[in-house]
Amino acid sequence: MAFISRYSNQKPVKQEELVNEKIRFKEVLVIGDDGEQIGVLPTRQAIELAYSKELDLVCVAPNGKPPVCKIIDFGKHRFEQQKKVREMKKNSKVVSLKETQLSVTIDTHDKNVKLKRTLKWLEEGDKVKIAIRFKGRQLAHIDLGEKILNDFVAECQEFCTVEKPAKMEGRTLTAILAPKKK
């Protein structure tokens, strides 16, 4: 990886593929185009063997002892790798963590509004962190906050699973809910 100044606006260069003449090892373990192991050969001889089959010598494990190279069509190999990356991106789903803040003195209507919004987030597939922040003398009544939080979680129960139960972290009582698997 090349050194990049923190003031430059260039992106880091992707590590180059070791193909044919770019392979600088003395000798390599060669795997043929049919997947059969040919053996340890000098690099020059392995490249000539690949050229004789009208294919490329690609280093697949440069850290091995000796480095492992395969005789394959490099263009096809690169296309397959790009295809795998695209497929992984397509199949991955980003789960975000939303937060609902309650208070010890919350009224019924306010709680219902926050409950509706929380249920909407859970249906969309997001995780929800429920937090109750205690201010001043409210810290003397943590049990009231736990009751409010447990009631709130109980009302969400059919749409979610409790990933992290209620826990006191500093002045905040938190719980994390995850959507139910369908």
Rank of each mutant, 00 (worst) to 15 (best):
V162M: 08
K167A: 15
L173H: 00
G145W: 05
R137C: 03
F159A: 05
C69W: 15
D110R: 08
I47F: 08
I23S: 03
N20M: 13
R137F: 09
Q37R: 14
K89M: 04
E21Y: 12
L41S: 02
T174V: 13
R86F: 12
Q82F: 07
R86P: 04
S103V: 11
Q10D: 03
H109P: 00
K70V: 14
I23W: 15
I23T: 01
I176G: 11
E27S: 13
T100F: 14
N20S: 09
T118V: 11
I176C: 10
E155L: 11
I71F: 05
R86H: 12
E27L: 03
L29V: 11
M168L: 15
P12E: 05
R117V: 12
G39Q: 01
I106H: 07
K116M: 06
L41D: 02
L18F: 09
E27Q: 13
E21N: 08
A61P: 01
E27M: 06
S103D: 11
A140K: 10
T118Q: 04
L139E: 15
F152C: 11
D56W: 08
L102D: 07
Q138N: 08
E80P: 00
R137I: 06
P66S: 07
T43D: 03
K120R: 08
D56L: 13
K181L: 11
T105F: 10
H109K: 05
V30W: 03
E54P: 01
A175Q: 02
N112M: 14
L29A: 12
I31D: 01
C156K: 04
V58K: 05
E155K: 04
F159C: 01
L97T: 12
K120Y: 02
D126H: 15
K120Q: 06
I38F: 03
R171M: 05
D143C: 00
L102Y: 02
P12D: 02
Q37P: 09
S103L: 03
Y7L: 13
I4H: 15
K111N: 04
K70C: 12
F3G: 12
I72N: 12
N63V: 11
I31S: 02
C69R: 11
V153R: 03
V113R: 14
F159S: 05
K65F: 15
I142F: 06
R44Y: 09
T174F: 00
K180L: 14
I132K: 07
Y51W: 13
G39R: 01
A50L: 08
T43M: 06
P66E: 07
S92W: 02
C160Q: 09
D34A: 06
K181Q: 12
E169F: 06
N20Q: 11
E169L: 09
K181E: 14
L144V: 14
V30T: 09
E48Y: 08
T108C: 09
V85W: 15
I47V: 10
T172K: 06
N20I: 08
R6L: 13
